[in-house]
Design a protein around this nucleic acid. Structure first.
Length: 556
RNA sequence: UGGGGUAUGGUGCAACGGCAGCACACCAGCCUUUGGAGCUGUGGAUCUUGGUUCGAAUCCAGGUACCCCAGCCA
């Protein structure tokens, strides 16, 4: 986390503080309401942190409540995954509940509404219900079943619950106002009939399931949630959110809406993410190119960096799209301070140092992390033949190119100055070997005579090099807003979002711990992938280092 | 053409009637055994038209643009 602990403030925090001051609420209790039908992504983190931090900052509590009101969509496998991801973020909750825990009580409340004449069973077909809802500019029409008497409604509702009627044949609706300008108030559905599949927790006990508007708000009330914080799209639902508890005379939580997180160069909806997985654009939900938390974790992002990003993005009601480069900046900032450095050559080019003794091996001292003196040093073996990065050599250098080229002298990091003498090519004209001479008086990288070089490059001793698979990731899409693609988001996929290389890394990286992170000097941050096997490590590019030269070269 | 919202540099967020600021991005320079990191600096914004006021991003009125809503999804 950067800078001093300035308490972020925003319109929600101000509203909550005001509610406490005015006595509207005495404590703060919030809830995390995920639907267990998918994996958490970066967009959820914003919502989660708002709920969690606002409770925490006010000495209140957070309840993790799974919104499992629709057995046709939800699966129990996601419950665990969501908890795991939320824990990774450091979120703490006082208890885990399920909307389905309250099905009995909720049903009792529905019957109260029926008894009050505020809800009725409607026998219209789904098509009729839709047709009679009216339009945005025209009022709806009352259902012919709207004025059924209470006894009949109670009887029908009970039989709906017991499974006497087929799916889609009837619903329970609140009786509000079919002419209401807010469509959500035109007698919204409270219960629909669902026979199959069985619910992941209540099995086949229920044949009717509550709709979101009915369940969510009443669950909030039952749990004593004071502030129900949600995204902007629920603004239109607030009148209904307030109507139910008002009729019932029960505790009334306050709903406040904020703008959800959007990110450039990515998509966030479950539907689109699922398509990426199902159409094998990516290799699963934890493919490091996905915006899911498991993917970001696998890629090497730290939770601290993700949280820092969320903090910096702030909270407001503007529709907004945050720049993914801010996320990357947060990741770099964290990893720069905390990850040990190593040398790795991604695209190897062989360099033979002609005046270096044939069999000599020297152990060079290398600093583990210049940002952290406590990280210490290590020994790196050096020998006559080494690998350097192909990018670090040019036979004919462009202007401002400081790296190795014939006649030029550079520093091998922590080793020696070398000067390129000539190159050897194969019959296709490709360079197969670069030859150089070294200056023995520059051991460690400092010249005795005060001579300067303009460039320092990284290297790995050929004899000692550990081979490694390196997965280079880039943005999944070529457009800031993938939706801009002519035929939707799948039409602007970045064909180079994954490049797999076989590189050479320092020998101590033969069997690194899965999940551990390193900075490969001058390249970027990498984390050890779970696909690694002993002696064959696999590294994921977490985020590259800023590359000033690449930028200059691009501009020309 | 109903209802609900939102408009501040490229992006995101502040400023709550009193000098429009911060971060990222961008650009220039310094420094450097990572062309990394770090440091310094430049440029650039209040949707519009009126009104109130000594003074308006902020208050008022009228426009404009954009977002959300017509699931028995959440």
């Amino acid at each position: 986390m950067s800078d001093e602990e300035t308490k972020p403030t925003d319109f929600i925090r101000e509203a909550v503080a005001e509610d406490l001051r005015s006595g509207r609420f005495k404590t703060v209790r919030t809830r995390l309401p995920p639907e267990p039908n998918g994996y958490l992504h970066i967009g959820h983190v914003k919502a989660f942190m708002i709920d969690y931090l606002i409770a925490k900052e006010n000495g209140g509590e957070l309840i993790l409540r799974f919104d499992d009101t629709n057995p046709t969509r939800e699966e129990t496998e996601f419950v665990e995954a969501i908890e795991e991801d939320a824990r990774w973020l450091g979120i703490e909750w006082v208890k885990v509940t399920y909307a389905s825990d309250y099905f009995d009580e909720l049903y009792e409340w529905a019957k109260r509404l029926v008894l009050m004449g505020k809800a009725y069973v409607d026998d219209q077909t789904p098509e009729e219900v839709s047709a009679n809802r009216g339009t945005l500019t025209e009022p709806g029409k009352n259902s012919p079943y709207r004025d059924r008497d209470v006894e009949e409604n109670m009887d029908l509702l009970e039989r709906m619950k017991d499974g006497e009627f087929p799916e889609g044949s009837r619903i329970l609706r609140a009786k509000i106002d079919m002419a209401h300008p807010n469509i959500n108030m035109r007698d919204p559905a409270m219960y629909r009939i669902i026979h199959n599949p069985p619910h992941h927790r209540t099995g086949d006990k229920w044949k009717i399931y509550p709709m979101y508007d009915w369940a969510h708000g009443q669950n909030d009330s039952m749990e004593g949630i004071t502030h129900s914080l949600c995204s902007l799209e629920y603004e239109n639902h607030r009148p209904l959110y307030e109507w139910f508890p008002e009729q019932l005379g029960v505790f009334k939580p306050r709903q406040i809406e904020f703008a959800r997180l959007n990110l450039t160069y990515t998509v966030m909806s479950k539907r689109k993410l699922r398509r990426l997985v199902e159409e094998k654009v990516v290799n699963g939900w934890d493919d490091p190119r996905m915006p899911t938390l498991r993917a970001m974790r696998r890629r090497g992002y730290t939770s601290a960096a993700v949280l820092d990003f969320i903090r910096r993005v702030g909270v407001a009601k503007n529709y907004s799209v945050s720049d993914v480069s801010l996320l990357e900046a947060c990741v770099r900032e964290d990893l720069n301070k905390n990850s040990p450095r190593r040398m790795a050559v991604l695209k190897p080019l062989k360099v033979v140092i002609d005046n270096y003794p044939e069999d000599l091996v020297e152990e060079m001292d290398a600093v583990n992390n210049p940002e952290d003196v406590n990280a210490g040093t290590r020994k790196v073996p050096f020998s006559k033949t080494i690998y350097i990065e192909q990018d670090d050599f040019r036979e004919t250098p462009p202007p401002k190119y400081y790296r190795l080229f014939p006649g030029n002298e550079v520093r091998l990091r922590y080793a020696y100055f070398i000067k390129c003498t000539h190159v050897i090519k194969n019959d296709k004209g490709q360079i197969t070997e670069v030859h150089a001479t070294y200056d023995p008086s520059t051991r460690g990288g400092d010249s005795a005579d005060g001579r300067k070089v303009k460039s320092t490059i990284h290297w790995v001793s050929a004899r000692h090099a550990q081979e490694a698979e390196i997965r280079m990731y880039d943005r999944l899409f070529t457009k800031e807003d993938p939706e801009e693609g002519e035929e939707g988001f799948l039409s602007c996929l970045n064909p180079n979002s994954l490049e797999i290389l076989t590189g050479k890394v320092e020998p101590d990286l033969a069997s690194p711990e899965v999940g551990s992170r390193f900075q490969f000097e001058r390249l970027g941050y990498f984390s050890v992938d779970s696909d690694s096997t002993p002696g064959r490590p696999v590294f994921n590019l977490t985020v590259n280092l800023k590359d000033t030269w690449a930028k200059m070269e691009k501009k020309g």
